[in-house]
Nucleic acid binder design. Structure first.
Lengths: 196, 196
DNA sequence: TCTGGAAGTTACAGACCGGTAACACCCTAG
DNA sequence: CTAGGGTGTTACCGGTCTGTAACTTCCAGA
């Protein structure tokens, strides 16, 4: 009902997009395949013709999310070509936007909280995306001429990760409201210390 | 099987403790009441004589977790009476211990990720605990004579929150490995800026 | 126009879920 | 000894879950 996204496209795409949306809103274990197919305007058989199991659907959803996240870095480069520091600030703004977008945290982190089996196929995707994100951020910091680029990148990573769960637990008026201030302060402070 | 904690005590206590353990390890939606009672060495009827629903059991588990977390602050005061700065450093060490304890994050944050209904009774408990934690940390920072105590407390909060989910997604060798360094650096840096 | 594959439909299997009823048991307080 | 409350046991309810079988319908390309 409220979970639309039923525009006419290929069933597989509709299922994937609908599942992504519903997993995000209601959690993975909180949504059944029947509900997904119904919201996607199709049926269970069609889902199982395109995905061999719910687990594979989950993995494919997370992969799609990772793909969209990857495009973000290209957008920064397109907007501020070569200016890594400007891109870093753009990342901060983008992160703040995500915080205010809705009360749900990061899909990857939420999935990791729900899928507790240590060898669940989704954990691989999650880890890969998080490591890719970290490397992108390190590259930005390094490119901006910041000494201790790894430490700043890791600190900013944890700060954002924490802010996203904080929004989910205490709301957007909690500690996460200060995210931009914290991040900008950290960048400034790290720029102060000598770059090698 | 692997989820023991069946020492002979009152059934209600065993159920509560076993549920806490299993929710922590396997997630809330990943554990059924049958599995809990069996691991607690009792049966479903006894559970439902003490808790009127699974939701109430969840709430009671989170309350117990909140209670244990509350005791932590008293332990700091007992160990370093009056010395708020030492207590703040003790908090950092304690936080680092929690990071290395196991690969699962904060029970409250994980519960918030799973229980998506905005009016779920557990969300109240979660929010209350997180707000209490924040106030305790602010009090420590303020007591340690730090200007911008709220900002430091919020930053440290987000950092720990982020570190706990990072452990869950990329493991203990990821960004969270630098948590102590980040936290100590922040405290030092905030102590540098004038108190008032 | 014919045909083959993709998609929809209905029904079902088998397991598990939260929750309850009815009844037998034991152990302790009086 | 006895009464009664806490506990254990068994069986069950209705619902939902993932996943499948068998069949029909639709539609695009040759």
């Amino acid at each position: 009902m409220t979970d639309g996204v039923v525009e006419r496209s290929r069933p597989r795409d509709r299922i994937l997009e609908t599942a992504r949306d519903m997993f995000h809103k209601h959690g993975i274990k909180g949504v059944g395949v029947d509900a997904i197919t119904e919201a996607a305007g199709t049926n269970k058989m069609t889902l199982y013709r395109h995905f061999e199991s719910k687990d594979e659907l989950i993995v494919e959803c997370l992969r799609a999310t990772a793909c969209k996240a990857g495009a973000m870095w290209d957008a920064f480069e397109a907007e501020y070509p070569g200016d890594k520091l400007a891109q870093l600030h753009a990342w901060v703004r983008k992160a703040a936007d995500m915080l205010n977008a809705d009360g749900r945290g990061c899909d990857m982190a939420n999935a990791a909280a729900e899928l507790t089996e240590p060898d669940h196929p989704a954990r691989r995707v999650i880890k890969e995306l998080k490591e890719a994100q970290r490397e992108h951020l390190v590259a930005l910091c390094r490119g901006a001429g910041i000494g201790q680029a790894e430490l700043l990148a890791d600190t900013l990573s944890l700060l954002l990760e924490g802010a996203r769960v904080s929004v989910q637990t205490v709301g957007a008026e909690g500690p996460s409201a200060q995210f931009v201030r914290m991040a900008e302060g950290l960048i400034l402070s790290f720029r102060g210390s000598a770059a090698i």
